[in-house]
Design a protein around this nucleic acid. Structure first.
Lengths: 146, 146
DNA sequence: CTTTACCTTTACGTAAACGTCAAGCAACGA
DNA sequence: TCGTTGCTTGACGTTTACGTAAAGGTAAAG
């Protein structure tokens, strides 16, 4: 799991690399602390604790990154939860793996549709953009100026 | 606007091709009539009327199709409204056209990001799928059987 | 010791996007 | 004429995804 030399080992000897506070992650990902706690409530995160304070490690941070991407893709929190679980299938449980397989394939199909939608929409928007630029030029207006 | 011979011209002589009832469109796009009326409330549609009943033509239907695609892409109704307006820039209003230009370009940037997200996620999901398939095969299980 | 800066939990508020009645008009078949 | 079917307009309910206080713990700085 660990890649190369692991610096910044904390005094507790956990050897998990550097850690993050909730506001550091909030800042980094453009969220509020409230939002991150909410994701935890919903079972998307389970950071460690230092006393009563939450402590996030690299894995937590990677999860949060996945969550943000899921959000950008328009998935609900429940869907993102399922999604994250796909990354966490441990060996030795073939039953759950087969479930993950069908779930993942549904997700793949839906994303393939979304890919088509995005490409189609981008194509249309670029055509519109070109048409407007051309039209404005014909009017003697500089499309990109003030 | 009209492509080729236009059959099914209605008795009112509008020559707009065939029309649709609200429930026909609801059926076709997998929505409820309530939802379609809601979109109208929000200014996304403005169908004609036959007495008190709504009558949708081909343009209305095309708009609804755009709305559905926007929804699949995770856009809010307000965003979809702006988006549809991009398709409706009539000539002769350069001011609004320049606004449409910047708006459209923002939309393009956001969709380009989304394209990357989708591609990245698809890649990861396919890798996971392959890993699970391989693993199940090693266990002597047929991944696609029952 | 107090202020400042974060962190915490608990809990109520809210905007978006509809769902779900309720009550009623209009046309059509029996 | 009655009943059914489909459409209509309200109006209130619901879920999701947080926002926004309220009230308090803790640790370093002044």
């Amino acid at each position: 799991m660990l890649d190369g030399v692991d610096r910044q080992v904390k005094a507790d000897g956990a050897a998990e690399g550097r850690t993050y506070t909730i506001s550091e992650l909030a800042e980094e990902f453009g969220l509020t602390a409230r939002t991150i706690r909410f994701y935890e409530d919903q079972g998307l995160l389970s950071p460690g604790r230092d006393g009563q304070n939450r402590v996030y490690n690299r894995r937590d941070r990677a999860r949060l990154k996945l969550i943000c991407r899921g959000k950008r893709l328009g998935f609900s929190i429940a869907e993102i939860k399922d999604f994250i679980d796909l990354y966490n299938v441990d060996d030795s449980q073939t039953g759950q793996m087969r479930y993950a397989l069908t779930l993942g394939r549904e997700r793949i199909r839906s994303l393939e549709q979304q890919l088509l939608d995005v490409q189609q929409t981008l194509k249309e928007l670029r055509e519109i953009d070109q048409a407007i630029v051309t039209h404005l030029r014909q009017q003697g207006v500089d499309p990109d100026g003030t």
